[in-house]
Write a protein that binds this DNA or RNA. Structure first.
Lengths: 121, 121, 121, 121
DNA sequence: TTTT
DNA sequence: TTTT
């Protein structure tokens, strides 16, 4: 079992690229406010596939999102030394902003929740 | 282990009362939209203590919230028959609405996320 | 967002059948012990596909499992009255028993954790 | 919202100390097997208070546990450079081993699940 | 209806 | 009984 749930805001614009296999990969980082008003924690988020594309297209720095995913340890070498860090692989991303939100029918794989009264859900 | 995380909207105004022990108890129900735009699921939510008071005071029918909690089975008797249902005991409630959101410093036990554009990211 | 994580034991043997579409569907219920030793909560669990088959094959009444999934509201009519209940749709099931545990290579879609003493930690 | 749920095994003995405030603090790391049998991810875990004491006393390297908690970013300076890493602050720890498991009445704050048939639950 |  |  490996399950993570967060609500926060992107601290920068999501950056999407396509891997050699043609799969979309978006990287972004999230600020999660602490419960008792003392600052935030910042985590790196990795998103694959259609959700990666939607996130890059419909959200930006400052966007509020809810994410469901799992923790992953990324490892690499630098100067002959093994390094590692923890990232969140998001398997679902939910737009929580007014401006950016879209209907579920328009954006595949997203669950948008709107605040505007004039949007025809 | 017993952990639940939801984002949705209250389907009615939260109803708060105080138990005989003087502890605040709020009951409300939440609509959680499904991932692929086909309707919603509706769950009952129970909240205790200071968070119960804040929820009753600062949210209402239609308010968007994120909740962390656990599943609980409530049992009772009706017409001599045992009945039971599943409710969510919310241990944290996060306001996700513009209108209702307050700073973490103002509302004890809540993590509010503002939609203002002046966030220092 | 709709995410549930539980650890508990099946209170009865998992019952599997195939739907008209040929998809495996397993129903079972789980007992989740409360944190402070005062009894348990009982929830219904629904599992689809290959995981449904594996659960039916490799677990039974009393088996200890960890499950990741989501809450779902089931509705039906009885005596002309609308009835509804909450079930957990398990998207991952992890075997936590010695006897039943199998390697990840043997059972597709499962993450088994063995109790053997020869783990290379 | 910031919620993490993991099942895995300690990769080393939990190390407990008391902070200047007299609060118990246990550090340990966990190996979480991946879903499809390809290795594991390793995360650092921090535990406070009574649960920290129980974890240090009743579990050891190789112990299987379920943890509920939250993600936290730890930051420090090294060689004048800001460094940071992600750790899991465990708010609940559930013993999943036969050998180590104890009844809920004996160990405060733990939910133990036994595999032995001869333990009088 | 309930697991250990 | 249901939110947007």
């Amino acid at each position: 079992m490996n399950s993570v749930n967060l609500i926060g805001r992107w601290t920068r614009d999501p950056e999407m690229r396509f891997t050699q296999n043609g799969k979309a990969l978006t990287k972004v980082s999230i600020a999660v406010n602490r419960t008792f008003g003392e600052g935030a924690d910042f985590f790196e988020v990795v998103i694959w596939g259609k959700i990666a594309e939607n996130t890059a297209q419909y959200t930006k720095k400052g966007s509020k999102v809810g994410i469901e995913g799992r923790l992953q340890q990324e490892t690499w070498e630098k100067d002959g030394q093994k390094r590692s860090k923890v990232v969140i692989v998001a398997e679902r991303v939910e737009f929580l902003d007014n401006k950016n939100s879209q209907s579920n029918n328009e954006i595949d794989g997203f669950q948008a929740i709107d605040d505007d009264d004039d949007i025809p859900f």
